[in-house]
């Protein structure tokens, strides 16, 4: 007994979609490898230099550690201040961007557009510009991190605000409370924990980011990173990287623990 297998629509029969996507990706792959001059052979023929570098990095110069302790502290301090300033500015913007608090679509749209634009800028690019403005040093770093975290935190915050329970707000509205009172008594208590949690999360990211900002002169450990790389002093580079790793992991650990307690 044979059964007629129903015919597929031709889009499916000729696998138009999967083949189309595969083709697009293949074309993009070929185009981008030509554009970037990817050459597998070259990587392997220069492998000697690369392994030499790795070998030199694998012998950390531990006596360099005391010298970089201070810049490491500075890195954390920059991250804390930058995140705090950014988060402080983010709160009013987040409130204005939340669709359940602000009903004016134009205002909301403009605020969100500003936030989207801020978020497109990579941190190192901001750092390069602020070093040009403020000169070499941690001021440029703090401002960079403030702007970078402002973009990130405000989005996280307004998404939190949009999930709140509107009941308490309506209750206060019905007794004629003004906007600020409503935000203070009905909005803040609901979102405080999540705000703090996101603040800590952003702090983690900023600690990571701040370790390289100095590469462009924006203060912190990155300054020493750049110096050691320029002087081909890779045993110092690896101490810096290892120390950064430890700092980042400690901060991550503390922050993760606090966030778990909070939520």
């Amino acid at each position: 007994m044979t059964t007629q297998i129903p015919r597929r629509p031709w889009l499916q029969r000729w696998h138009v979609k999967p083949i189309g996507w595969t083709l697009i990706i293949l074309i993009l792959l070929v185009a981008s490898s030509r554009m970037t001059g990817v050459d597998v052979g070259m990587f392997f023929s220069n492998l000697g230099q690369f392994t030499d570098l790795l070998v030199r990095m694998s012998r950390p110069a531990w006596d360099y550690l005391p010298i970089i302790l201070h810049p490491l502290y500075e890195t954390i301090q920059m991250a804390i201040l930058g995140t705090t300033i950014g988060a402080a500015f983010a709160v009013p913007f987040a409130v204005l961007a939340a669709s359940n608090l602000v009903h004016n679509r134009w205002l909301r749209g403009i605020i969100r557009l500003i936030l989207d634009l801020v978020r497109t800028l990579p941190d190192l690019l901001l750092a390069a510009i602020f070093v040009a403005i403020f000169g070499i040093g941690s001021t440029a770093g703090v401002v960079t991190l403030a702007i970078f975290s402002f973009g990130m935190v405000s989005k996280l915050f307004y998404e939190v605000i949009e999930t709140i329970d509107m009941g308490p707000l309506e209750a206060l509205e019905s007794v004629g409370a003004n906007k600020l009172t409503i935000i203070w008594y009905a909005v803040l208590p609901q979102i405080m924990n999540q705000f703090v949690s996101y603040f800590l999360y952003t702090l983690e990211i900023n600690v990571r980011a701040s370790t390289v900002l100095g590469y462009l002169g924006a203060g912190g450990i990155g300054v020493f990173l750049q110096r050691s790389l320029n002087e081909f002093n890779y045993s110092q580079t690896s101490v810096i990287i290892l120390a950064t790793l430890v700092v980042v992991m400690v901060i991550d650990g503390i922050s993760n623990h606090l966030r778990r307690v909070l939520l």
Binding site: T2, I5, P6
Partner: peptide, 22 residues
């Protein structure tokens, strides 16, 4: 195999879902 594809159609017919094959 084609035989098994037919078998799949038959199996779907038994649960009255042959038209949902694709």
């Amino acid at each position: 195999s084609t035989t098994d594809k037919q078998k799949a159609v038959q199996a779907l017919q038994r649960v009255s879902l042959a038209e949902k094959l694709y």
